[in-house]
Amino acid sequence: MLELRLLQGGLLKKVLEAMKDLVNDANFDCSPTGFSLQAMDSSHVALVSLLLRSEGFEHYRCDRNVSMGMNLNNMAKMLRCAGNDDIVTLKADDGSDCITFMFENPSQDKIADFEMKLMDIDSEHLGIPDAEYQSIVRMPAAEFARICRDLSTIGDTVLISVSKEGVQFSTRGDMGTANIVCRRTTTVDKPEEDVIIEMEEPVSLTFALRYLNSFTKATPLATQVTISMSSDLPMVIEYRIEGMGYIRYYLAPKIDE
């Protein structure tokens, strides 16, 4: 028996919007720790990792570890029928081939049940080792989204270079080139607007903007985004979900041949 009750149903809606363009079908894993997912995009270039910890739910019952295959587009469609302030409950009986999403409005005078078929999905689970990254940038999530969107109108890839002074985003295309530098900030009064750089070594890596733009669908989940890079590893873009966990995107770099 599985029963997960989330007071902020809008959060689950945002989580689905942040994943559905990248991944079609995925297994949600439910355990006493929380509700999680790990899935790759169809070309195996990017990976998304989601964790919603059990403590973040108002009620969390998961009698045994269970993996539920879902089509993320269909799940997003069902969740779009919930109001942003609705309480959302996920329910599944042991061995059942469907999951129920229950939506309750804040005044609790409207209750809706949506039942969705589960699917069998063969998915590869990758082991992601803990790593020390050479450069970590924390910056406003909206600013990062704006930069990725702007640069993708000029070119297909972005070179991200981190130095002690700041982070530079560069692209080139048929019409010309573009460079955006975000300097490290030193203010302390508005931490949500800060650009913070933790650097062991300067890093310069090239990534496909198409993927970065798809990751920035998670922007409504967090005010800040953390970008971790090492020259020999995929980059990690993390949006922390307050009080619940995180959504992390891993993206393999491009290399000069």
């Binding site: 790759m40 195996h44 270039v45 990017a46 689970h125 082991g127 890839t157 995929p234 393999a252 041949e257």
Partner: peptide, 14 residues
């Protein structure tokens, strides 16, 4: 030419 690497070339299957 920038060659796209795959994520599976970095992480091992569990």
């Amino acid at each position: 030419v920038n060659q796209q690497r795959q994520i599976t070339s970095f992480f091992t299957k569990k």
